[in-house]
Amino acid sequence: MLHRRLYQFLLVYTLGLGLLLSFKYLLDLSDYVIPGVQDIRKAATSVFFRYLMDTLDTLSVAVVGHLIAILMAGIVGIIGRSASWSGAFIRAAAYNIQAYPIVAVAPIIFILFGDGMVSRLLIAAMICYFPLLLSFIGVFAEPVTDIEHFYTATGRMNWRLQIGIRAFENMAKLTTVITGSATLAMVGTIVAEFIAATAGIGHSIRIALYQSDLSKILVALFLIGIFNSLYLFLLEWIGKRIRVRLDPPTGGRGARRGRLILKGKEIRNPI
């Protein structure tokens, strides 16, 4: 799976680069407009390690931002799932806030939190939070009647059990949307760095843009693509592991022992 992700990215990157270089040589453009192979090689040699560190920095912020977004979407999804007035208000507020473009909201974030880590995290989280929220609200607000009926009828239902049932029943959907939103977290972090931060690959891209240095941007895009592919692969792998652990296809360790085992620990049945 990792191979496939990397192949896919490398194929897209190579095609894109090939197209750019075709334009360059076909139209006889200077290296200022589109850098040549030699120029890209030189840029790669000079900035590769620095950009690698920057990309890792960005990735680490994106991962934390992504976790925050999952948490935020989870909480808002749980509160917003109810049909009550407060649930409807939270849903409407969440949708309205997201309707504002991040470039318009960003200045307020920077005024409140400065141009450091917090702002980067917040913007990354905000950008990937909305698709997560939509899915979370969708999942948490949709009753799984065939399962929930027993617990409701016997007075055992509580909000944790309800969330547990709905999340478990939609595990594949949730893991897919979490994986999908990871790219947005990375994009969000880069945007935040581009707009305001003084670290990360977004900041480096901004400087390269100021200097009209497309070759450096191409190096940055390469690293972003590679690390994004790795992160997506990691999330897919974790999602798969969780699904297998919670719901083994043919019995599994937990099944044999008649109880739920997760990360070596017995999880008490939440019923």
């Binding site: 027993f150 008649g258 739920l260 049945n269």
Partner: peptide
Amino acid sequence: YTYHTERIPGWATVES
């Protein structure tokens, strides 16, 4: 009231 298409969560075994 119980009906025939009811299900039990899949996170644990029947015994559990």
